[in-house]
């Protein structure tokens, strides 16, 4: 068990709803759900094959204290942020944001499913963007394509070749970014300090060890 997971389990005992309300972004809205089902019915992703649980079911599971099932689920990682559910919810529950809040919290606790592709993308994107303060698209695609090994990566890159060439022609992708660190923000130190401060404030607000 990760340190943070241990810390939170001890703090909230069996009150998982309270834990989500205080620790997951927008989690305090979960209690407002009236289980109407419109979010599940509006979701374009096919949760029967890809999702274990549609949003409304996740909210009920949180209230029922199903901590492991919720945090270890791949469901919230499948949200594509289409906002269909968000605009239709009769209680104005910010469902999309809760999905991301739950995913992020599960990740912090070390409970998120390891081989989940969206999680891999998110992590890669975050590391890539925060390193220099700019997204390096060449490196980002490289990391994503080659995540399952060299052969698979080459295959994927070949398949996407014409798209990549088109992007280069339209000056949307600069192959030179692959050389060296690519272009950076002027004040990388400042950006890193800002991120560290944000993390500190978050830890303070949520009563976590920094």
């Amino acid at each position: 068990m990760s340190d943070m997971n241990q810390q939170m389990t001890a703090r909230y005992k069996n009150n998982f709803l309270k834990e989500i309300e205080e620790q997951a972004e927008m989690g305090d809205w979960v209690k407002m759900c009236m289980q109407c089902g419109v979010c599940s019915g509006s979701c374009p992703t096919n949760f029967h094959s890809a999702w274990d649980h549609p949003p409304q079911e996740l909210f009920m599971m949180i209230r029922a204290g199903k901590r492991d099932e919720v945090l270890e689920s791949g469901s919230m990682w499948n949200c594509v942020s289409c906002y269909n559910c968000y605009v239709r919810c009769p209680r104005k529950v910010p469902i999309t944001h809760i999905m991301h809040g739950l995913a992020e919290y599960a990740y912090r606790l070390g409970k998120a499913p390891k081989q989940q592709p969206t999680q891999f993308l998110s992590k890669t994107f975050w590391d890539n963007a925060t390193k220099t303060g700019r997204v390096n698209e060449v490196k980002l695609t490289q990391t994503l394509y080659f995540k399952n090994g060299l052969m698979d990566g080459i295959k994927q890159a070949m398949a996407m070749q014409s798209v990549a060439l088109g992007l280069v022609k339209a000056k949307r992708l600069n192959p030179m970014e692959a050389v060296g660190g690519g272009h950076k923000c002027k004040d990388i130190k400042g950006i890193h300090a800002m991120l560290a401060k944000a993390r500190e404030l978050e830890a303070q607000r949520k009563g976590r060890a920094a």
């Binding site: 289980q35 419109v38 949760f47 549609p54 079911e57």
Partner: peptide, 8 residues
């Protein structure tokens, strides 16, 4: 179109 919440 929708989801029957009794059994999803």
């Amino acid at each position: 179109w929708g989801v029957n919440t009794e059994g999803y």
